[in-house]
Structures are given as C-alpha cells and as structure tokens.
Nucleic acid binder design. Structure first.
Lengths: 344, 344
DNA sequence: ATGAAAGCGCTAACAC
DNA sequence: GTGTTAGCGCTTTCAT
C-alpha cells in the first residue's frame, strides 16, 4: 500500500505539500505541484478514503432516502444520481426509511440521529414524501447537511435546492388534451395525500376543467395510492358507474395501467370507449397495450441535478456562500401522445 | 459527539472493554457487558464508521456491480441486498461497469485495480453477465474479496457462493405447461448469448420438446436481448410466418410483453390464437393484459442471500474456514399461471 | 509558500 | 477476563 508519506519522500517534499496538491489548495509552486503529480502517478498512489474521512469529517458519500428502491420513480432517479455521483468520485448509498418512521416525530429524530452520526453523509437526496417533511428538513438543515429535494413540496428552505417539474401546468395540459378530444366527463384518480404531486396534479386537472367551463364532479374523483392495484380498483369503480366518464386521468402511470386492465375486465375498449392518460412516462407506458399517453418527467435528470448541486455545496464546505439562495429548479416536462387516448 | 472513551468512563470500564462489547467479542463478564450497553444507550453513543474503517481496514460496504440499476432484475436484487445490508449495518453501493470494460481484459484489470484500492469493498455482488466472467472472478479472488455470484454460470470457484434457480428445470416446466395445453409448435426467444440463463432456459425448452417427441424447429427460435423491443421484433417475425407457432416462450418477461404487443399490432388474440409465456415474474407480468404466465425467480431472496453470505465471510476475515467449500445455492422457483396461456 | 507536530476515534497487539 | 499502549493515514493547526 502506497501512503501519502511515500509520495512525499519520492517527490522530495513534505507530507503537507502532497496533501495540498491533492486537495487543490492554493499556495503551492507549480514545480512542486508537477513533481507531486508525477510521483502520484508513478507510485500508483490512491488516497485512503477512511483516513481522509476520519480527519476531515467528510465521507464522500451521498445518501438517497427512500422507503424502497423498487418502482420506476426512485429507480430512475437513483440511476441518474448514481451516474453523476460516480462521475464526481462520490459513493451513492440508498438509506431505507419507512413511512412510519417519517410520520412519527420521535422515531424520525432518533433515526436521523443514528443516521447522521453513523453515516456522516456529505449530502442527502430526498424523494417524496421525504422531501415534503418539514421536520426532517429541519433536522438535516440543523446538522448542516446539504439537501436536494425532489418533487413538488411546500418546504421553505433558504439553504437548499428543490428539483421538480411544474406538476400543475403539466396536469392541465394532459387534461386539456382530453378536453380537445371532446371529452367533458373526465374522471381523476388521486395519489398519496401526503405527496405534493397529488395536489398539484389535481389542481391542474380542475383548472383545465374550469377554463373549459366544465363543472368538476367529485363523484368521478377517486382516491388512489400510486399503485397499480389502487388504480385498477378506482378504474373498476369508475367504469361501473351508470353515468361513467369517457376519459380517466390517473395521477401516475401505474394507476393508469390499472385502469386499462379494469377496462379489459369489463370488456370496455381503450381508447374507443374510454380514454386513459397517465403521468410519469414510466417504463410501463410503452410496454402495455394500448401504449399510454402520459406526461414525461425527466427522472434521470432529477437524480443528476440533485447530485450536481450536492457536489457544489460540498465544495463550499457547509457554508451557503453561493449567491444563489433558496430556489426551485423547475425542469421541463413533455406531453407524450400515444394510443390510449382518442376522441369521444 | 460521544466517543467510545466517554462510554468507557461513564460505564467505569476501559476503552477496550467497550470495544469488545460492541464487536461482540468473547471474554467479557455479563455485568460489564450490561453496564456498557446501558451507557451506550444513555449517552446515545454511535460508533464512527471512518475511525473503525481506518483502523480495521474494513469499510462495512458491499458493492453490487452492474451496468445499470434500471430494469426489474437488478432493481429487485438490489432491493433485497439493500435491506439485508442495512440490517447488518453495512452500506450497499452500486458500482457501474460497462459491458465494454467487462469484455476487454486490460480495461477490466485497470478498472478493478482502481475499484479495489479506492473502494476497499468488504464484499462484492455480481449479477449476469459479470457473474459469468472468469477473469473478473479471478481478479477479485486474488484480492481476497468475498463474492456472491447471482444467476447460472460456469465459474469454478472453491471460495465463494453462487445463487440461482435451476433455469433448465424451470424452463422445462414452462414448456411442459404449453405442451399440456396441446401446443406442438412452440417458438422460443433467446436472451443475451453471454448470459448462462439463455442457454439453460433454451436447454429446458428443448428437453421438454424432446421428451414430448416434438422435433425442435430452429426457424421458430429467434434471438433476443432480454429487452421489450427485441421481444416485440422477434414476436413480429414469428407471427408473420406462414406456419406460425401457436405458442411462444420468451426467455424473460420484458420480451414476452413485446410479443403480446406484437400480437395486438397484428390483431392476433392472446391467448386464443397465440399463447405467450415469460420468465422472471417481473412487475410487468401482472400489469399487462392479458396477465402473463411466467416463472417466478426469487429475486429479492437472491439479494438477501448474497448479502448474508458476504456478512458471514466478513466475520471470518478473509479466511475461508467455514467447512462449506464452494457451493451453488439453488433456490426454489415457482410456476405462475396467469391469463396469457391457453389451449390450442 | 512550506513544513513539523498533533490528533481525528477506533481496534490490534500485547501486557497483566 | 481486563486494561494499556500504539498507531491506522490523513488533515488541521501552527510555526517558520
């Protein structure tokens, strides 16, 4: 194993000079700098992450907090975050937290304490509904951990970034698409009530109806949990109504897929007898029949941006001295027209 | 920050005793043990991972090597591995490696060198096709890194475990199911040729045909790449044949979903006019219509077992002194009958 | 601009 | 069975 001292001896400089060079600190002559780089290369020196961590209190590790890693949303965000982390020499670790922990302040406090002292994350990526918890946000903030929050939320936080699309505008566009096809009776399936996205998307839906002079009928707005099963059940409900809708907007693709299966089970043709539109453009959307019209969220980019931000913050060690204060990074969405929507 | 020495003082014992208790080492009186546990709890002590790593040369981190983290297979395996890692206090990091790197010995050597010295993994989990590379296996073995290999493969390795189902037997059962429904003309869609699974599954398919006295017709065996698109293309090919098969067995679910879409595009009814069966029981299988008959691989368990093994090995630091030598851990699969298969 | 010395929090080696 | 001592490889502090 080659140590830093070996490099120093080989280059004929002091330990500290090597350290300075490797950490891109100023106050080193270019001559020495080059000597050091040469020695590093020749000896094949690789710094010890643990020694560095112990002394500097940095771990070069970001943590993505989630309940699970399964499902298109986290999986894709993780994929983007992973690539970006690797690129910058950071590890990405997924830390699992249950919804129960999130929702019980005491549990959340103790989980966080153990998490912070044990893992010493250099930054944290939060997906819904973790990104939407004021308490969790506050705990992390107090500990001086840089945070990237993903998805729409109501957190007021002058220190960190929030990455999302404009869910309301996107949902409005999706609804307008259905309206332009002549639909007037459009059902809606909600998601988790503690996800900001649910409310934003519902708002876009109702805004579009209002603009078109269509009265919102609460009887065709159904609860859901972003899962295939909940979408199928809501679909079954909606499709068995006497005065059933001619189109259904599900707050995500998994639920939309559930509606399509519900339609099959009732021998109702999509899109001839019922139009279905989703949200996310998950893998599923192109793999089912009919293929699903939907809104594409840039999930990979969510992960990448989240990491880029953390890397920047990590540079300005714990200080928030970039002149960018709190801000929300609103990315572009895309309306994807496929085969699950058609004229009335 | 509470240090180990603080716990020692609080409990009235020495530093080393605390260390012993926390590492579950023997030779400590129960009285002291309890005292220490009490102090730990009272002070809210959490060990520092970096200090521990620096001294013990262990990182408490396992790496899962993969090209990507997207897709049902890795995603689900990762999920299992993650939970198990967390349970045992280990981090799980995904390290991305491209197929190109894997297939070029020099690149693989240099990638591995950087990986090993920089990350110092306490163990490595390999999924196909990484689990099937003799060179990579040898490099890791030489470095004394415990390995869990997932999926069928031909590596001879006395030091590590291999976790899989019996793909041949499973594929044979799937094929027999089709035969028992009266199918005699059964197409097959292969996967990546460097995945052992492709060959094992094909073997099961041909064994079943042979047992039933059906001659294998190479013209209805198509190449594929485990992707939805490749399955759809193969499906389009097969369904446009003059003498098209009455059933298709795709080597995974994504391809089977592709076949189903191909059938829709040609107005061919599933399962009335063509039966389709997949392999994996991915998320997709229950979300498409008709729902997919398939073979369930215990993917979560793959990940869990992989980690359990690594944790055990990590205990017996680098030594291979468990009397279990090399072995393959063959888990149970399950045949899942759904609605995509029916009588001729 | 450079270097010497101290010490991060823990475990290994070795007493007793 | 328990405690003492040393030191992992680096960065920080302070001196020059």
């Amino acid at each position: 194993m080659v140590r830093m001292i070996d490099v120093a001896n080989h280059a004929g400089v002091s330990l500290k000079t090597v350290s300075r060079v490797l950490n891109n600190e100023p106050h080193v002559q270019d001559t020495l700098r080059n000597k050091v780089h040469a020695s590093v290369k020749e000896l094949g020196y690789v710094p010890s992450a643990s020694a560095r961590s112990l002394r500097s209190n940095r771990t070069y590790t970001f943590h993505l907090i989630s309940r699970t890693v399964e499902g298109n949303f986290v999986n894709t965000v993780q994929s983007g975050a992973l690539r970006a982390s690797q690129k910058h020499g950071y590890n990405l670790v997924v830390s699992l937290m249950s919804f129960e922990t999130l929702n019980h302040p005491e549990d959340l406090e103790s989980w966080s304490k153990a998490f912070l002292t044990q893992k010493k994350p250099d930054g944290v990526i939060l997906v819904p509904p973790y990104s939407d918890s004021p308490l969790f946000n506050e705990i992390l903030n107090k500990a001086g951990i840089p945070i990237s929050r993903i998805g729409p939320n109501e957190i007021k936080d002058m220190n960190n970034v929030n990455i999302t699309i404009d869910d309301s505008i996107a949902a409005k566009e999706a609804t307008n698409h259905l309206i332009s096809l002549g639909h007037r009776r459009i059902g809606f399936i909600r998601g988790y009530e503690d996800h900001g996205a649910t409310h934003k998307r519902f708002k876009g839906y109702s805004d579009a109806l209002q603009d078109a002079g269509i009265e919102l009928d609460p009887s065709i707005v159904k609860p859901g949990f972003f899962s295939f099963e909940s979408g199928m059940n809501a679909g079954l409900d909606l499709l068995s109504m006497d005065n059933r809708p001619t189109a259904i907007f599900a707050a995500n693709d998994d639920m939309a897929a559930g509606v399509i299966v519900a339609a099959y089970r009732n021998n109702i043709k999509v899109p001839e007898e019922i139009s279905v539109i989703g949200f996310d453009d998950s893998e599923l959307a192109e793999r089912i029949w009919p293929t699903l019209s939907t809104i594409r969220q840039p999930l990979i980019k969510y992960g990448e941006q989240a990491v880029e931000y953390l890397v920047n913050r990590a540079g300005n060690n714990t200080k928030n001295d970039n002149n960018k204060p709190s801000w929300t990074d609103i990315l572009d969405y895309q309306f994807i027209l496929r085969e699950s929507t058609g004229p009335v």
